[in-house]
Amino acid sequence: MSDQLLDPRAIRLGETAASRDDAIRLCGEVLVEIGAAEPGYIDTMLAREQSISTYVGEGVAIPHGTLAGKDLVKRDALAVLRFPETVDWDGEPVTLCVAIAAQGDGHVELLAALAEILLDEDQARELREATEPETVTRLLGSIQEEAKQ
């Protein structure tokens, strides 16, 4: 299915990035590639990061665009990129990016699931150390199913 919130093609667990901005560009490119956003959205993701970091703790960042960038979103979608060698995120080591393109609230339940995971040390580690896409979809996925009902 290409219209789902977390497209299997958007889960990439062996990425490398030289810098925070490099990682954000990679995230943005995946969102563009799966048809969730226009290429211009990537610049708004970089702009957002400049103003306020999207680091949320436990080695996870959730890069996304600005309010103006919402017009460049084609459908609500997420991308999960893992950087096993970590990326320096303004001094915080980031292993996992959950990149967001959203116009509506379709992704809210999935972000709620992410928040729950990050508040649980063991689950946060499991997500951070995931090497199989199935682990990511399992951790985030059960809630995603509920959201569809």
Binding site: R48, S51, L111, A115, L119
Partner: peptide
């Protein structure tokens, strides 16, 4: 409140709701 109301505010709101 956040800039786009798309990411971090959504996450924080969901934990606060709970």
């Amino acid at each position: 409140a956040c800039d786009a109301g798309m990411g971090s505010s959504v996450m924080l709101a969901s934990t606060l709701r709970k």
